[in-house]
Amino acid sequence: MRDEAYETNDIFLVAAKVISSTILRYRKLKATRLKENDKCATPNVSDHSDISLLLEAWKPISMGHKRRWWDCVALPDDVDSSDESAFRMQIRELAFTSLQLLKAAIFDKECEPLFSLETYGHIIGMFELNNLDLVVASPVEDYFLYIDDLPYTEKQEAEQVTQPFLDALGDDYSVCCQGTGFFPLQSCMNHSCCPNAKAFKREEDRDGQATLIALGPISKGEEVTISYVDEDLPFEERQALLADYGFKCKCPKCLQEET
């Protein structure tokens, strides 16, 4: 499980950001309501959790398709199917341990529902099923470009500090940051093995954004679909991968190949 922890550590960090950002949105919504109540001379909002505000703060995340991480994570090639139950239990325990660390760091009593293992598992599962590879420009390179554009005197002063770092980094200072991202619109799109669109991310697109590109003409009123898996895989392999999403694909391509 140590290797699994190393490989999934980033997904725990992303889940922690989801929870912390939701708490911040909740706090802002509550502060706004308190101000409005003060202006209207109405009774103040209670110090206790307001579930309606918490649900409002949760709304940007709620649209993503979510299954519990330990239910949807793909079985590694080196794990026999007979050991699947034990593997998924280990994954659940890994999530539980991560959640306890998160609670110790940022637990908020008013937002307690966010810290349940069920919610945490669904957040991680959301990223497991909906993430999209992306590339972001190196912030270090952007910083050095900013230094280059400074007036001469300021540039000289700045380079006295930054030049040793630039020398130490060498050519690596311009390496782009690669990772995964969650995009709400993409996460709401249904699957088809013969999709009419693709969630696209070119290496030269370094703004952290994703683009949906039509793969052909799309008629007015026609549903826009993407493929959750490699649609060129054989029928059986596609169905096995899609089982992690909790459905059996019945798109025209699958219906034709099944028969």
Rank of each mutant, 00 (worst) to 15 (best):
S187T: 09
G246T: 01
S49R: 07
Q163D: 04
G181T: 04
P184G: 00
I106L: 04
E84M: 13
F182A: 06
D244Q: 11
V140N: 03
F235S: 09
Y228N: 02
L55Y: 05
G179R: 00
E112S: 15
A137F: 03
P113H: 02
P76A: 10
F12S: 10
A16F: 08
A95C: 14
C254V: 04
D83E: 15
F107I: 04
L169F: 08
S219A: 12
A5D: 12
W58N: 05
E236L: 13
R33L: 14
E141W: 00
L215Q: 11
A168S: 12
Q100M: 15
V161T: 07
T22N: 04
R27G: 01
R92D: 13
P252E: 06
L212F: 01
L117T: 01
D83N: 14
C194G: 10
D232A: 09
W58F: 11
K201P: 10
F96S: 14
L215S: 03
F127G: 09
A15V: 08
T97A: 12
Q156R: 12
E93H: 10
T22H: 08
S46L: 03
A243W: 06
A210E: 01
V175L: 12
E141G: 03
P217K: 11
N9D: 15
C188K: 13
D171R: 14
E7R: 15
M1A: 11
P139G: 01
E157N: 05
F247P: 00
D47I: 05
K155H: 01
L55G: 06
A137I: 07
E36F: 01
A57W: 04
L54C: 02
E237H: 03
L114F: 00
R27P: 10
K59E: 13
A168L: 15
K66C: 08
F165W: 12
R67M: 14
T8C: 08
S116W: 04
D230G: 10
G64N: 14
D171I: 13
D171T: 14
R33G: 00
F235E: 15
C188H: 05
R238S: 06
A15E: 06
A74K: 11
N130G: 00
E7H: 14
L53Y: 02
Q100A: 14
G125K: 08
L53N: 02
D83Q: 12
L13T: 12
D38R: 13
Y6I: 13
D133S: 02
Q209F: 09
K253Q: 00
L114H: 00
I11G: 02
I51P: 13
A31W: 07
E154Y: 07
G121P: 09
P113L: 00
H48K: 15
P151D: 05
K35A: 05
D83G: 05
Q186C: 11
E203Q: 15
P252W: 05
H191T: 04
W70R: 03
A137G: 07
K248N: 15
R92K: 12
V18S: 04
D232V: 08
K155Q: 00
L55W: 10
